[in-house]
Amino acid sequence: MAKILVVTSGKGGVGKTTTSAAIGTGLALRGHKTVIVDFDVGLRNLDLIMGCERRVVYDFVNVCNGEATLNQALIKDKRLENLYILAASQTRDKDALSKEGVEKVIKELSEQFEYVVCDSPAGIEKGAHLAMYFADEAIVVTNPEVSSVRDSDRMLGLLASKSKRAEEGLEPIKERLLLTRYDPERVTKGEMLGVEDVEEILAINLLGVIPESQAVLKASNQGVPVILDDQSDAGQAYSDAVDRLLGKEVPHRFLDVQKKGFLQRLFGGRE
């Protein structure tokens, strides 16, 4: 049985799609057969970031509605053997997805894959609800600012009360915090919340901290998930996060302003 991961946030533009692409690719890199599903119907972003937008024939909505089979719609990544993408439709709106349709597709994906990564749309409405409803684990993407933290908090409330696991009284969704677009300099200046502040408010397990990085925009323009840029800080931070997701203990990096020497940068973790 696959593990269903939802990448969610409440607030828009915080880095969900960037994260879904990076984490999904990272899991595949480590040998796990993975599919990334774009739940953001009407916007379609994931395929651009994954660089497969020219190969989309059928999409998630087509499969939900039985207009195409899953295997017709799954797009194989051209870089990695065991990575697939299920694109969102650009021509439909959010109401094109139904709970029954989504359940059917997720079930079918669970039989073929080890990990199903669901890229949630922003908000707390239907689309976001469907993306998280069947999840086993949630990666709550948060930027270090008050409005994003509030929305994540709200989303955590929904994960705990409105998911399938909650409704059926099963073990709750495992919640993890991914702090993205973290800029230590602005934290020092008091313009952004620090890691500890966010951890204290949300009080959930910290999966990782992804620094604000030029590499993200560069990677998305090239259609390459940033985790494949292993020279970049953001790529390395996503790699660490994937390792932690798989149960490894890895110290957190990129939390401090980079004015240190080379060795310190290599070995300076948290603590």
Binding site: I124, A160, A203
Partner: peptide
């Protein structure tokens, strides 16, 4: 016993309410 997150509302009708976790802004 669980955190009360933003957007949640809890009413203890006719009795006391005891929360053993954090109560978020917006709750």
């Amino acid at each position: 016993t669980q955190p009360v997150r933003g957007g949640m509302q809890i009413y203890a009708q006719g009795c006391d309410l005891i929360v053993l976790a954090a109560v978020s802004a917006g709750a």
